[in-house]
Simulated assay, not measured.
Amino acid sequence: MSDDPLAAIVPKKEGEEAIAALREEGVYDDSRSVREAGSDALALPVIRPPKGTEVHEVIRQPDPEPRAPGLADLLAERGWDDAEIERAPKSWAVIGSVILADFGGCPREREIGEALLELHGGADTVLAREGISGEHREPSVRAVAGAGDTETVHTEHGTEYALDLSKVMFSPGNKAERARMGEVVEQGERVLDMFAGIGYFTLPMARAGAGVTAVERNPVAFRYLLENAVLNGVEERIDAYRADCRDVEVQGIDRVVMGYYEAHDYLPAALEALGDGSVLHMHEATPEAELWERPVSRLREAGKTAGRDVEVLDERRVKSHSAGVAHVVVDARIGRSR
């Protein structure tokens, strides 16, 4: 029926990550349960088609089932009253075997952690996020329940990311963009990833057949970058440098990825590396009131200074960065000024 509710189809192995991304996008329907869609896929309930989360397809779902018990139900079973439940986390991320949540001073953290582990049977640790600090934007986390492990291996679209959540960042909300970068590259392309981290974009691109020059100055993230190249069997396609990306000289590059919120400061180096007719992907944290004028004008101004033509190909919102600020990406083709 045309008024049947919607469901997004995703591979089973990506179910937890997809649910987290759909929740962050604000389209996940907590009133219905997840159902199987064949032997290898899940039908995730959504209130409207997602725009920022990659799914196989969106279908109508006749005879929907009420959702299975959620966190609030489990806490109520443990004797929590409505006021206490209201203070419990409303969202969390499952990264590999670790659940990462913002507790924000809510009561009885351990009971919440144990309930979350009950909800996500594949996880063995719950960590509280307590902020980010330092030159390398290092996360601060605290073990709340379970084994207390901070190291894990997270899988997305077949790419494996080994990481330590107490030392490096991982954003579930960037999942669709990570997957997209593995789709836009072509076999044999030369790519420069200026802020490679643990391989967020480098690994999908290398797995797709690109040769990637990956630059990362954080020594811990760089160690995981090397480990993940081997883990995914793409070490022969990645040239990794622990350095400031402005100090790595490469030219004639087909594609540059600038996956950092302040990437505009590094545009001269990116434009210098790019060949004629190549593509640039510039990330930025932009106030909503300045979309899309600010990132595009910054890119055009840098192109003018460098004597390069800039053709904007796409403008995409990745996710919310903070109140009133969006994480966006501008794709552009870069040419030589005639």
Rank of each mutant, 00 (worst) to 15 (best):
M194V: 04
R294G: 06
L42E: 04
E54N: 11
R246G: 14
V250R: 13
D331H: 07
T150G: 01
P287R: 06
L71N: 00
A196D: 02
P287Q: 08
V256F: 03
G199Y: 00
L117S: 10
V230N: 14
D276A: 11
L22S: 05
D149G: 13
G96V: 00
A43F: 01
E216I: 01
E114G: 07
L203Y: 04
A162I: 06
I99F: 09
S171D: 09
I19R: 12
N228R: 02
A270S: 06
R237D: 08
Y266R: 10
E135P: 15
A221Q: 00
E114F: 06
G277L: 01
E236R: 11
K13I: 09
I85L: 01
V257E: 12
V184Q: 07
E77I: 04
P172S: 13
A162C: 10
K51N: 13
L225G: 02
N174W: 03
V58G: 05
A41Q: 10
H281G: 05
S31A: 11
V230A: 11
E293P: 03
H283F: 12
E24S: 12
D164K: 03
E77L: 11
D239C: 14
A21G: 02
E160H: 14
R142H: 11
E17G: 12
V55R: 01
R255Y: 08
P89A: 05
D3S: 15
W92Q: 01
A147D: 12
H157T: 14
G303S: 00
A221F: 01
N228P: 04
R255D: 06
A20T: 14
V98Y: 02
D244V: 04
T150D: 07
F103R: 06
P287E: 03
L203S: 10
G275D: 08
R178I: 01
P204L: 07
V248T: 03
L6H: 04
N174C: 10
E227G: 13
R32L: 12
S31P: 10
Y266V: 14
I85R: 12
F170W: 14
R246C: 15
A20G: 15
G182I: 09
V144W: 06
V191F: 07
G15Y: 13
R223W: 10
P45W: 04
V126I: 03
I99L: 09
D63R: 14
R142V: 07
A88Y: 00
G182R: 04
V279F: 07
A101Q: 05
V325W: 10
Y266E: 15
A210R: 06
H157Y: 14
V94Y: 02
E109C: 09
M258G: 03
